[in-house]
C-alpha cells in the first residue's frame, strides 16, 4: 500500500498524534508517579513533574525485597520457555487445522473454540488438582507445561495460514518435500509477521499471568514478578509509589520484546516475485 490516502496525510498525522497522546499520557503519568513519594501521590495533584523528585521507590523495591531479582529471573525463564514452545506448537496445530486434510479436523477446530469459551476462573480449580496429582505444584514445569499450548493462538495461526498462498506448498511438494519439511522450511519462515505477533502476545501473557502462579507457587523463592509485586499492595493501604516503580521495572522487558519484534511488521515479507 503506497500512499493510500494522498491528500489527507495531514489529517492522518493529526489523528495519529491525538491518539498517541491519549495512549501516552497514562503511561507518562505512571512513570512520573514512580518518582513521587506516597504523600505526593495521595495528595491528589495532577502534576506530571514530581514536586520532589525521588529515586527512593526504585531503591526500596530492590533493597526491601531481597527476592526481587529472583522473581525477575523466574518470570523471565518461564516466559522465555513458554514463548518458545508456544510458537512451535501453536503454529504446527494452526497449520494442520488450516491446511492439512485429516478426519476430525473440523471437530478439533470446534473443540478449540469451545475450550476458549470457558472462563479461566473455572478451570483453575481442576487444573490445580491435576497439577497436584502430577506433583508439579511449586515447580517451574507446573507453570510451564499447562501453558505451552494456547488455544487462542492456534486459532490465530489457523486464520493466518488460511490466507497462505497454496502455490508455495504445491511447489515444495513437487520438489519432493513432505508435510513436515514443507512446514519447517517453507511455511514457517514466511510466517514471520504472524510469529512476531504471537511472540509479543505469548511473552506478555506469560509475563503478566497472575492467577495460575498465585495458586501454583507457594514458595516465595518460586514466585513470579506479578505475585511478588502483589506484596506492595497492603491490606488497607496501597503503596502506589512502590507499585508504580515496580511496574515500570516490570513493563520494560515486555516493551523491549515488543519494540524488537515490531521490526518484523516494518520489514514486511513478500510471497511473490517482483520485490526481493
Amino acid at each position: 500500500m503506497k500512499k493510500p490516502f494522498h491528500g489527507s496525510i495531514k489529517v492522518l498525522y493529526i489523528g495519529l498524534i491525538l491518539y498517541g497522546i491519549i495512549t501516552f499520557i497514562p503511561f507518562i503519568w505512571a512513570l512520573s508517579a514512580s518518582f513521587k513519594s506516597l504523600a505526593e501521590i495521595s495528595s491528589g495533584g495532577s502534576n506530571f513533574i514530581p514536586n520532589s523528585f525521588t529515586f527512593d521507590n526504585y531503591k526500596q523495591i530492590f533493597l526491601q525485597e531481597p527476592r526481587f531479582g529472583r522473581w525477575l529471573f523466574n518470570s523471565a525463564i518461564v516466559a522465555l520457555i513458554v514463548t518458545f514452545f508456544n510458537l512451535l506448537f501453536n503454529s504446527m496445530a494452526g497449520y494442520a487445522l488450516a491446511r492439512v486434510r485429516f478426519p476430525g479436523n473440523q471437530f478439533l477446530f470446534f473443540l478449540i473454540l469451545a475450550v476458549l469459551v470457558v472462563p479461566a476462573q473455572i478451570t483453575l480449580l481442576p487444573k490445580f488438582l491435576i497439577l497436584k496429582s502430577l506433583g508439579w505444584l511449586n515447580s517451574y514445569q507446573g507453570l510451564i507445561v499447562p501453558t505451552v499450548v494456547n488455544a487462542t493462538f492456534i486459532f490465530m495461526m489457523r486464520q493466518f495460514f488460511l490466507n497462505f498462498p497454496k502455490e508455495l506448498e504445491e511447489a515444495a511438494a513437487l520438489d519432493g518435500l513432505n508435510r513436515f519439511e514443507t512446514f519447517f522450511q517453507v511455511v514457517l519462515p514466511l510466517a514471520k509477521p504472524a510469529l512476531a505477533a504471537q511472540t509479543i502476545f505469548i511473552f506478555m501473557g506469560s509475563w503478566n499471568e497472575f492467577l495460575l502462579p498465585l495458586v501454583v507457587m507457594s514458595d516465595p523463592d518460586m514466585f513470579t514478578l506479578p505475585i511478588g509485586l502483589n506484596a506492595f499492595k497492603g491490606q488497607y493501604i496501597t503503596y502506589w509509589n512502590y507499585i508504580m516503580a515496580a511496574s515500570m521495572v516490570f513493563t520494560l522487558p515486555a516493551l523491549a520484546i515488543y519494540a524488537f519484534f515490531n521490526r518484523y511488521f516494518i520489514q514486511g515479507v513478500t510471497f511473490t516475485g517482483g520485490k526481493s
Binding site: 497472575f210 495458586v215 516465595p220 502483589n230 506484596a231 499492595k233 497492603g234
Partner: peptide, 12 residues
C-alpha cells in the same frame, strides 16, 4: 517460611 498473599487471599 513466610508467604505474603495480598490479592484474593481467601480464594487462594
Amino acid at each position: 517460611k513466610r508467604e505474603v498473599i495480598n490479592s484474593q487471599y481467601m480464594d487462594v
